[in-house]
C-alpha cells in the first residue's frame, strides 16, 4: 500500500483555544492505521518550514460513498510555524502526506483493563483509543478549562472521563497522575486484575509516571524533533534499555520501562 500520498482537506475547523480539527481524504487507498501510529504532513509548498510535521490521528473513517478512500481526523494544536500555516489552509487544498508510520499502541488482551491518560495536547494521540475501547477510564489533565478542545468534531462519547486541571477550573484540582494513581489502587483493591495504561503527554509526565509504583504495563507515545519519519535520517533517536531506538520507526509508542530518562 502506498504510504506516500496526497490528500484533500475536507474540513479544517479552528477552535477558540488554538486547536483545530483537520479532516483529509486520501487521493488513493491507504492502509488502515492503528491508533498511536502517525502521519507526516507537509504544511504547504514553501521551503520554510522545510520539513513535514508528524501528527497522530484521532480517527480513520473507513471508505464510504462520500470518501471512497476513507478519511483521517486530526486534532492539532497551533503551536508553531507549521501548525499555524496548516490551521489556515482552505477546504479543497491538497497536502502531501506520508503514513501510516511507526508502531501504535499494542492490543489490549481480554483479561486486561485499559486506563487512558492524556496530558494537554497529548489527547490527540489517545483520543482514538476511546472509540475502540468504549467505557475505558480516560484521565485527562489540562492546565485550565479553556484549553480543552471541543469534542464535537470527533466520535467521542465522553463516558468515563476523569478531568483534572492545575488551577481547579474543571474537574479534580491537581495532577492527572494523582487521580490516576488513586483510581488504579482503588481498582486493585476492588476487582483487581491486570492493568494497561496508554498515555500521551509531555516528557515530564512520563518521567513522573516512571517514578510511580503503578503496578501496570505502561505504554507512552513519545514526541521528538524528526526529519524523515521513515527511519532513515536517524534524527529522532531515544535512549532505551535495548539501545538507541528511532521514535518514528520503533515508536512513537514505547513501553515506559524501556525508556532511559537522563539527568
Amino acid at each position: 500500500m502506498n504510504r506516500l500520498f496526497t490528500a484533500e482537506i475536507v474540513r479544517n475547523d479552528p477552535m477558540d483555544n488554538g486547536y483545530f480539527a483537520l479532516q483529509v481524504t486520501p487521493d488513493v487507498e491507504i492502509s488502515e492505521p492503528d491508533i498511536g501510529q502517525f502521519f507526516m504532513i507537509k504544511t504547504g509548498e514553501s521551503i520554510d518550514p522545510l520539513l513535514l510535521r508528524p501528527f497522530s490521528f484521532v480517527d480513520f473513517i473507513p471508505p464510504n460513498d462520500k470518501y471512497p478512500n476513507g478519511s483521517l481526523m486530526f486534532l492539532i494544536g497551533a503551536v508553531g510555524k507549521g501548525t499555524n500555516i496548516l490551521k489556515h489552509l482552505a477546504v479543497g487544498m491538497r497536502l502531501s502526506v506520508i503514513g501510516p508510520l511507526g508502531q501504535g499502541f499494542p492490543p489490549v488482551a481480554s483479561d486486561e483493563i485499559l486506563f487512558i491518560v492524556a496530558g494537554g495536547i497529548g489527547i490527540a494521540s489517545v483520543l482514538g483509543l476511546t472509540n475502540v475501547n468504549p467505557n475505558t477510564p480516560f484521565f485527562y489533565g489540562v492546565r485550565t478549562k479553556e484549553l480543552i478542545p471541543d469534542m464535537v468534531w470527533f466520535n467521542y462519547t465522553g463516558i468515563n472521563t476523569f478531568t483534572t486541571s492545575d488551577d481547579g477550573s474543571i474537574g479534580f484540582a491537581g495532577s492527572v497522575l494523582e487521580l490516576l494513581e488513586k483510581q488504579v489502587s482503588e481498582f486493585k483493591r476492588g476487582c483487581g486484575g491486570k492493568i494497561k495504561i496508554y498515555a500521551c503527554g509531555p516528557n515530564g509526565m512520563y518521567r513522573a509516571m516512571a517514578g510511580m509504583n503503578l503496578d501496570a504495563d505502561v505504554y507512552v507515545s513519545l514526541e521528538t524533533p524528526m526529519a524523515c519519519g521513515i527511519g532513515t535520517c536517524l534524527g529522532c533517536a531515544v535512549d532505551t534499555v535495548n539501545g538507541l531506538k528511532m521514535v518514528c520507526k520503533d515508536g512513537p509508542v514505547f513501553n515506559l520501562k524501556d525508556i532511559i530518562w537522563d539527568g
Binding site: L50, A227, D239
Partner: peptide
C-alpha cells in the same frame, strides 16, 4: 557506530541541523 546521543536534528529556516554522528 552508535552515533551521538538524542537531540540529533533541529529545523532551521529553510534548512535543518543534524548531529547524527555517523551512526
Amino acid at each position: 557506530a552508535k552515533g551521538n546521543p538524542p537531540g540529533r536534528v533541529w529545523e532551521t529556516p529553510c534548512g535543518m541541523l543534524n548531529a547524527i554522528g555517523l551512526q
